[in-house]
Computed example of a mutant assay.
Amino acid sequence: MQWKELERTARQIRLRDLEAVYAAGAGHIGGEMSAIDILTALYFHVLKIYPDDAKHPDRDRFVLSKGHTACALYVTLAKRGFFPEDEISTFLQPHSRLNGHPNCNKVPGVETNTGPLGHGLPVAIGIATAGKLSSAAYHTYVMTGDGEMQEGSNWEAIMAASQFQLNNLTLIIDHNRFQQGAALADTNNVAPLRPKLEAFGWEVTEINGNDMAEIVPALQHRGARPHCIVAHTNKGHGISFMQDRVDWHHKVPNKEQYELAVAELSEAL
């Protein structure tokens, strides 16, 4: 029943994300849908956070390195109480603080500005290193896309995390097999990811990243080394005609598609 409630929350977040992208006429809905189950598990079960005191020093840290999926993070943060849920309707509107990429200077709960791919993991390693140096109890999580793992800065950061034994760090790779314009396998195929991370001295867990029963235990794991979760997900998860379709990386549904998607997500609630 614990997982059922988280699954229901994830469906609610998917529906609100869909509504926001449709209303704004822009967004990155495919990668948002693949990541929402993990975001839900983090913010509604795993993270030690304080929505009324977003910068509480004891909070766990989460960095969304794949910053183009900001809308999913905004909806999750709002639902968790960091800011009013009705503000989601301002997504991408003039003067809104809910921009296309997260801004830590404007949005409560956002740890660092992200967007340029390959930056979030190095920043998260800095955060985790600071925690080690200050003997802080917080844990640092960071989510990247699998296409993003083609960036060399990530592999430099992975080496550093192993060197400094950052067992207070969890990397989540949203392995949905697609990136902008093509499948991962047709661009620069970094899969399989597990042996590469293990070769750099990381502990690696592979899971179904759209299954709460696998997501939550993986996120809660603590070991002696930095931990990577290779989360096998589906781009566009939860909406039948979007799932595993590369064109839904940043495509916006038309009215008919929107109504169909709303019906599918609402039926599951």
Rank of each mutant, 00 (worst) to 15 (best):
A213Q: 14
A183N: 10
D186N: 02
L197E: 04
D174I: 00
F178R: 05
I173C: 07
D186R: 01
K196L: 11
K196D: 12
N176G: 02
N210H: 10
I173S: 00
L193R: 10
E203T: 13
H175N: 13
I173G: 02
K196E: 07
A183L: 10
R194I: 05
G201P: 13
E206M: 03
I173K: 04
N208D: 15
W202H: 02
E206N: 00
T205D: 11
F178G: 02
A185D: 14
A182Y: 00
G201E: 07
E198H: 10
E198M: 14
A199C: 08
L193V: 12
I172N: 03
A213N: 14
N188G: 12
P195Q: 10
D174S: 03
A199R: 09
D211K: 12
N210W: 08
N176A: 10
I173D: 03
A183Q: 12
V190G: 08
T187V: 04
F200I: 03
D174V: 02
D211Y: 10
Q179E: 15
T187Y: 07
V204K: 11
P192V: 06
A199S: 15
P192K: 04
G201A: 07
I207L: 03
L184C: 04
I207K: 00
D211I: 00
G209V: 01
I207W: 05
E203S: 12
M212L: 07
I172D: 03
E203C: 10
A185H: 14
N189V: 06
A199L: 09
K196R: 14
W202N: 02
N208L: 02
T187L: 04
E198G: 11
H175L: 12
V190W: 07
N188T: 13
R194G: 08
T187W: 02
N176P: 05
A185Y: 14
I207Y: 01
N210P: 08
D211E: 14
